[in-house]
């Protein structure tokens, strides 16, 4: 049964151009997960995941708690390498240069792939220095380019108007929603190839959530976004593609509208109609 499902999935993937290309012929591949396994010590958390990430689109990953969606996201910037005992199998290829990021230096990977976390985690520094942090580590220290790119990033995160008069104040004076947009600005400032978001609105109220969703729908014109979310409506609202995961496997992947209106798999259908999860 399990094997059948696997082959079925692989065949589907062999079919694809879908979901890429189907949506728009101009769509290009930014990353491709190939047969990815992941272990926390002896516990296998990801089992043979295949996923194509479209350039400058929003890809959402949904699924019940513990299904491995955050684990998969954190493979993209090798966050798991910070903790002992974790191991990877398979590949995540980055395009256009076609390199396997699982074999790259994690520091280099993280210089190219930004991340926003579940809980807003600004540094105990000024608003300006928070956004500048990612620029400074890349050697940008001169005042003019710093000023320009900090403003640009804050504009991009729709926070500029709210903080432009208090850039030197502590980031901890901001509200939770503002802090999260600050974290988005911090991740955007170095112009990453891919922006990872790990349930970025789960700690926020509905108004702050709406602002961030609005921001994300604009963002994907310039950056490739991968977002993990518990909130199916959110995935439906803001993503171009959606992946449904269950028990460490990718069950179904497709254009968001298709997946939500006509899921191919029974499991996906059960989840999105609220029968479990």
């Amino acid at each position: 049964m399990q094997r059948q499902l696997n082959t079925l999935m692989n065949e589907q993937f062999d079919d694809i151009p879908a979901p890429l290309g189907e949506a728009s012929p101009a769509t290009e591949l930014r990353a491709e997960v190939r047969n990815l396994d992941f272990w926390y010590g002896d516990t296998q958390a990801l089992k043979g995941v295949n996923l194509r990430v479209a350039d400058r689109k929003v890809t959402a990953m949904i699924g019940p708690s513990g299904c491995g969606k955050s684990t998969l996201l954190r493979c993209f910037n090798r966050m798991h390498d910070l903790y002992p005992g974790n191991s990877y199998g398979g590949e995540i290829r980055l395009f256009p240069e076609d390199r396997n990021l699982i074999e790259m230096d994690p520091g280099l990977v993280r210089l190219r792939i930004g991340m926003v976390f579940q809980k807003p985690n600004p540094f105990p520094k000024s608003i300006f220095e928070n956004v500048a942090a990612g620029l400074r580590v890349r050697g940008i220290n001169a005042k003019k380019p710093l000023d320009e790119r900090v403003e640009q990033a804050l504009q991009g995160a729709a926070l500029w108007d709210e903080v432009k008069d208090r850039l030197q104040e502590s980031a901890y004076g901001l509200s939770g929603g503002q802090q999260q947009r600050l974290c988005i600005a911090r991740a955007l400032a170095p112009q990453p190839d891919i922006l990872l978001l790990d349930e970025p609105t789960s700690a926020l109220d509905p108004i702050a959530t709406a602002k961030i969703e609005d921001l994300l729908t604009k963002l994907h014109k310039s950056v490739t976004v991968i977002i993990v979310t518990h909130n199916m409506q959110q995935a439906a609202r803001i993503s171009n593609y959606t992946a449904y995961m269950h028990m460490g496997k990718l069950v179904e992947y497709g254009v968001t509208d298709d997946l939500f209106t006509a899921p191919r798999e029974q499991m996906t259908s059960d989840y999105i109609t609220g029968r479990f999860g």
């Binding site: 993280r110 540094f123 991740a187």
Partner: peptide, 12 residues
């Protein structure tokens, strides 16, 4: 979470 924020920016 603060450390992860640093690492995610490419910090050593």
């Amino acid at each position: 979470g603060l450390r992860e924020a640093g690492y995610a920016l490419g910090y050593s």
